[in-house]
Design a protein around this nucleic acid. Sequence first.
DNA 1: GAGATTGACGAATGTCCGTTCTAGAATGTG
DNA 2: CACATTCTAGAACGGACATTCGTCAATCTC
Lengths: 197, 197
Amino acid sequence: MGRTRTFDVDEALDIALDTFWERGFDGTSIQVLCRAMDVQPGSVYAAFGTKRDLFVAVLRRYLETVSADAVQRINSAPSGIRGLRDYFAHLVDAMVDGRRRWGCLVTNSLVELAERDPDLAGLFQLHLAGLRTSFAGAIARARAEGDLRPAAGPESADLLLAVVQGMNVMAKTHPGRAVLQSVADAALDGLVAPGDR
Amino acid sequence: MGRTRTFDVDEALDIALDTFWERGFDGTSIQVLCRAMDVQPGSVYAAFGTKRDLFVAVLRRYLETVSADAVQRINSAPSGIRGLRDYFAHLVDAMVDGRRRWGCLVTNSLVELAERDPDLAGLFQLHLAGLRTSFAGAIARARAEGDLRPAAGPESADLLLAVVQGMNVMAKTHPGRAVLQSVADAALDGLVAPGDR
DNA sequence: GAGATTGACGAATGTCCGTTCTAGAATGTG
DNA sequence: CACATTCTAGAACGGACATTCGTCAATCTC
């Protein structure tokens, strides 16, 4: 019944994702969005609701694809330390070459919107807590595997979380691979037992 | 000659600073700004030029007061390590109690504007480089004073820079003192020689 | 104190924003 | 093939935005 949609919703969502990611929420007008997606305003509102609704859908898609893919690397590694190293290596690569040259959509949006949108702020905080838990899991695993410096405790998960947020900020200045790599290495070298790399 | 200004420029600039700091560039309309400063649009444009001009003036004021005050703590301490500890302690305090509960104006603006305003991006990058240099100086001093872990090198300045940026992001989620303190402690404990705190 | 100059006020301007509306095109059902 | 339904295209809408302008008030110089 009725006319069938002529554009692919997920495809349009991916384009909206890249647009919001690069330009931020306020920096992305519906008009720009429509041009990028090649869809008219009426259709956008019919399919996604308001601009904020669309943004939430984009955010969900980001968490399910980009973010989930990154976190996956922590847990599916052969060891706790390797999981962390793989995660950071992938982060650095994506910041130099890939879409993470715009930083992280969650970090960017947290900085831009948390102060004025408590609901979104809660969502961001939840995501950060999830990442922290993944870090804590990998650290606990590394501890069991004997790869950790004695002084490194569970509070190291908070440090890693801060380092990742900081790298997300620094990525927006396009500092080159060396700097980002150095930050990641320094953060992890502070955890692992000396001479165990 | 002619009528004298009835509002204090620096005072107005401080109010604009707080407003931009809390709400961001796009989130702060001229109207909101005028209401906060208790100055009419015409006077604002006569005194400061465009919104972007005003923002640059605000940024300069931030660097000369808030930021300079923070960096000052690094260099004026009795030792390299103490300088770093004082700096982070002050950061945590301001994030819990003070104006840094909105993060850092430079970090916030970098995330919001760097992608679309290359001139501002250069200014942000310059500021980050300056902070990095201060960290490097304190680290070199601590090395000379024998307070540093052997593995800690100059690349630790980049790590500290990332940690500060990350704390600025996390501050916007209002995580409470414990988390921020733990991040700062973990970052510094990774530098100092064991049992030398 | 007259004239010139500068600032304050606040209404006005044009543009762009998010959103909605109208018209028509495409599909499903009888 | 008619009808109901759901989509697309794009014009239209009200409001908010950054910025400017016109009018009047205050201050300086002579």
